[in-house]
Design a protein around this nucleic acid. Structure first.
Lengths: 349, 349
DNA sequence: TTGTAGGCGTTATCAA
DNA sequence: TTGATAACGCCTACAA
């Protein structure tokens, strides 16, 4: 703090204009009606709607008074009464993760159109923060083993959860899962069968046992083959790394005919790298990713990928249903993956 | 929705375990004390702290009862009473923007250590959503002209705002501003004076009138020069684009001696591109960015950049002060920019 | 069609 | 050291 340069404004700027938040009572007084009437009007029981109904003239007076006072209902008080906050909370581990962002985007859009406010929480330890929160529905991005008991506890406390995780079973909360490794295997098999000479690009690429890279090695092994050194590019987190790795694979005389990138993000960088080498993706080299993201679909050429069908949209509507209470909680939503063949792997001419 | 594949669990999984949320009254009953006592204990007025003080034995009984019932205070009810939500809200226009993410990161960390929950809202139109929200402090990322009146309105309603914007004056809310163009000009002048042959890399690079690119052209014009075509690389949003643009500038016989990239993010990609060409950044070519981000500082070699001093940390503590009510609102915080010379531009050997 | 009044779960002010 | 009890702002059955 010692070094900051701050110029405070004169007292004038800091003058606290009377910030008395208008309450429903003040509106009622100003309109010459009771608080109940104000509440009716503002909850949308005008004339014509169902329920008691309020005279048009009264409605007008109330609206006017509320407007003049700049009245906005106190959400906290409303929540105490109704138990609803008109809010959905999205807990994501890493704000940088494009997949999480797509979920956020999808759920946010759906939420807004149902008059729910989407809020995001970025903390890999959601256990403490969620104790406090009071959203109508909470989405959780991923669950570490030690966090699993917390889920049940939260659910028992009445928090309505939707959890994205492959290792957890529903228990008072919804679970969304999706078999990514099976999907990856289908994609790799497909690439090998069609192109034969396939390379791997992704983090942990040299570990034949685990993850999306392991699937590649397993598929080769099953065919009695192993991956040559110049057919595997291990990368780290940064975008430049994916780009550079792709260059390494593709900028050689004897380049592979297809590239399996372990995420769409990586694949997109690979496409850019290939193009910078003057290669026509889909003809000179096939490139496929994992995740079936929008970014990949919109790429030129459109990216072949493997991913769950309709997952985003469905997660969004699950969240809305859970928030509005239209759906009993505790369901398991399993999304099979499938290959989405697009221009980036159009077969050998 | 028609196409989704969902397998619901059996009725067993959906069984609604009695989700009756324990209230403070139940805890009081179970512990054989009054609700007031429970409140004292749980608000941390144990023995030793200031205030009434509660007998150790009673404290123990209350804690036990609360634990057994799995009691958690109802935040909404608490907010009605106290007017505080123990929450700060960060409104960011684009979740993808690394600078916004750094603000989020900085404020979140500070908030957590003061027992405030940071929440993020991603919507370029914050006007409607903020009407509802009930945070103790709200940070706003950027203000479009038509949104300006909304600020004053919110402030008058008692919403405690901290606004980051160069075109707005405090008016019941705090303003954080920072003259980026002036800073950029200082950097460009510095680069031209030291290296003479400087190139420009960034979006809108060919527009000599506006933004961080315009500053570059203005600096040249003032010296009676103009930028040659191979000294300007216009790019678009994607990371690959920055990388490719940098290659275009640097992969020529007659390459520039320095590169002014209009953001740290772009500069980082440029450094990677230079390195992939075998150039030693800082010796063979100087590269500087804008924003003075952590990512740049941590880069190898560390990135020269221009940016505000201590802005992040100060914004974080402003938010905490505003949230806790320690500071009167309505201040103007102006951050001058300065050049941070680091290894990526170490002068000619 | 509108008003009265009770209660949601807390905290805070008193008095005991 | 603890307990009644009155708010906080809102919604809603019920009465008028």
């Amino acid at each position: 703090m010692s070094e900051r340069s701050v110029s405070e404004t004169s007292a004038k700027g800091s003058v606290q204009a009377a910030v008395v938040r208008p309450t429903i009572r003040m509106v009622a007084e100003r309109a010459g009606v009771s608080t109940a009437t104000v509440s009716y009007v503002l909850s949308g029981r005008g004339p014509g709607t169902k329920g008691p109904g309020v005279k048009a003239e009264t409605t007008r007076r109330v609206r006017e008074a509320a407007e003049e006072l700049g009245y906005r209902p106190n959400q906290a008080a409303r929540a105490v009464r109704t138990g609803k906050t008109q809010t959905v909370l999205l807990s994501v581990t890493m704000l940088q993760d494009p997949w999480s962002l797509e979920v956020v985007e999808a759920v946010s859009t759906a939420a807004r159109s149902h008059d729910l406010t989407p809020l995001i929480m970025a903390d890999d330890d959601w256990t403490i923060a969620l104790e406090r929160t009071q959203a109508d529905a909470v989405f959780i991005d991923s669950v570490r083993p030690e966090q699993r008991p917390a889920l049940t506890k939260l659910a028992r406390r009445g928090v309505r959860l939707v959890v994205f995780d492959s290792t957890v079973e529903p228990d008072g909360f919804d679970v969304v899962r999706s078999d990514d490794l099976g999907g990856c295997r289908t994609l790799v098999d497909h690439l090998i069968d069609e192109w034969d000479d396939v390379a791997l690009l992704g983090p942990g690429a040299t570990d034949p046992r685990r993850g999306r890279a392991g699937v590649f090695h397993a598929a080769l092994a099953e065919r009695g083959r192993t991956a040559a050194g110049n057919r595997v590019a291990d990368i780290v987190g940064s975008p430049g790394s994916a780009y550079a790795g792709a260059l390494r694979l593709l900028d050689q005389e004897d380049r592979p005919r297809a590239v399996y990138a372990s995420s769409d993000y990586i694949a997109i960088n690979a496409v850019h790298a290939a193009q910078s080498l003057g290669l026509v993706v889909g003809r000179d080299v096939a490139i496929a990713g994992v995740g079936n993201t929008l970014a990949g679909e919109r790429l030129q050429p459109s990216l072949t990928s493997v991913g769950p069908r309709e997952l985003l949209g469905t997660v969004a509507s699950i969240m809305v249903d859970v928030a509005t209470g239209d759906k009993p909680v505790g369901a398991l939503h399993d999304f099979p993956w499938e290959v989405w063949e697009r221009a980036s792997t159009h077969g050998p001419a």
